[in-house]
Nucleic acid binder design. Structure first.
Lengths: 233, 233
DNA sequence: TGAATAGTGTCTTTCAGACAATATTCT
DNA sequence: AGAATATTGTCTGAAAGACACTATTCA
């Protein structure tokens, strides 16, 4: 039996029926808070409830493709995604055994407003990994989505200084103040301005554009760009 | 249609056939090097080649259970596991679409020797995330196992100071020298002794046992234990 | 006593936090 | 000029690296 014969026979045989999905925690910052986007589920189970956007992965679709499709089909938003953890508890979905790959995405604050009308998702504040409703009480979420969001926030914090992923929270050009506000929202506390400036400017992730902010009521700040670097740190 | 009716109908319908596996990078340290355990594949595809131990996840089996089963069935080793990333490229397995959840485990150096005879896996040195054969040339691995190991090492390094997972590399009681050797093997460079000592002793992860090493050829070091703490940092 | 390593002290450098001074732009 | 914020400078304390010293145990 050649290897290709074997593969053909193998592929035809039955495999444990486990479905694979991707769920996406779409983050943004507004003011001092971190926010996460939730959609109202269109279908059972948990129809009508607020949840993270997610889809079943198609047979010929990479995981990050599926995550981006979840964002665009369920939330009406296009953004790059980053995987943070897989969730596979046996009873996490009542329908059948589902393993969900958890992804996160980030949306610059001003895009939240501009897509606001068309987007089918609403942003909720997240403090210390807990989603709050408009009255700032903890929100109950279906499946294990509460745990997913907490894990996503923990991963976000852990990797804040190791990766350049934080720049997805910002437009192409931004000021150091805006970058500091994003760091503060993610870490849930204020950071020291001079130390933050020198640390970030020395980090090698930033590139000065030479341009200044416009439409400010005060002294405009210099604008920076995220530099293209080889991955992580 | 009630929700339970719906679920019944739903579960019966066909789902995209995607298999789910777990693969485990079993690490240990020997001397100054980090090591990873590879097995010789018993079955096609890639029969006979060195690869990470892995199994298909069973329908009623949690992901970490499956990872521990991979370790014990394929490598003959029992150890706790930690998930680091999911791998789901469409063509990563020639048989069929497989999404693999990547786990890591760690074995104290002295257990490597003691299980050596019974274990069906052999340790290979890893430098900068690259597996080397006995001649210290880079080893070619099947599937995406090379990428998996590199990602596992990167995750290990990133989380070295954020989690207490590093203590899985050590027996229940250990000296600060041994702990430092493990840090050095993982980071791939030497670390400063006084700084390391004070940092670790102040970290709150350690608990003095009051006991000393035995069977040393020289002054015995004090032994410490990993303190039970609420998860991560 | 000598070998070997444990554990500590000191000096220096680096870096973050606190606070404040100076600079720039708009109204 | 006054308001508001950007940007920089200075001081201080915490922590890390380099280096070397003292302490302890075994052979």
């Amino acid at each position: 039996m050649t290897e290709s014969d074997f593969i053909a026979a193998y592929a035809a045989s039955a495999y444990p029926a486990i479905a694979v999905t991707t769920d996406v925690a779409l983050f943004s910052t507004s003011g001092r808070d971190l926010g996460v986007g939730l959609i109202q589920r269109a279908e059972a189970p948990e129809q009508g409830r607020l949840a993270l956007p997610g889809v079943f992965v198609r047979p010929k679709e990479d995981l990050d493709r599926a995550a981006m499709r979840a964002l665009s089909e369920k939330a009406g938003i296009d953004a790059p995604v980053r995987q943070f953890k897989a969730f596979g508890a046996v009873d996490r979905d009542p329908r059948l055994r589902v393993v969900s790959i958890g992804f996160m995405a980030a949306l610059p604050a001003e895009r939240v407003d501009s897509v606001g009308a068309s987007a089918r998702c609403k942003m909720f504040a997240v403090r210390d990994g807990v989603v709050l409703d408009d009255g700032l009480a903890p929100l109950t979420l279906p499946f294990d989505h509460r745990e997913m969001i907490a894990d996503a926030v923990a991963d976000l914090r852990r990797n804040l200084d190791h990766t350049n992923w934080v720049f997805n929270f910002l437009p192409r050009e931004f000021s150091l103040r805006e970058l500091q506000r994003v760091h503060e929202a993610i870490r849930g506390r204020t950071v020291n301005k001079p130390a933050f400036r020198t640390r970030l400017l020395d980090s090698g992730w930033l590139e000065a554009t030479g341009r200044l902010e416009t439409n400010t009521k005060f002294r405009p700040a210099e604008l920076y760009r995220a530099r293209e670097v080889r991955g992580e740190r």
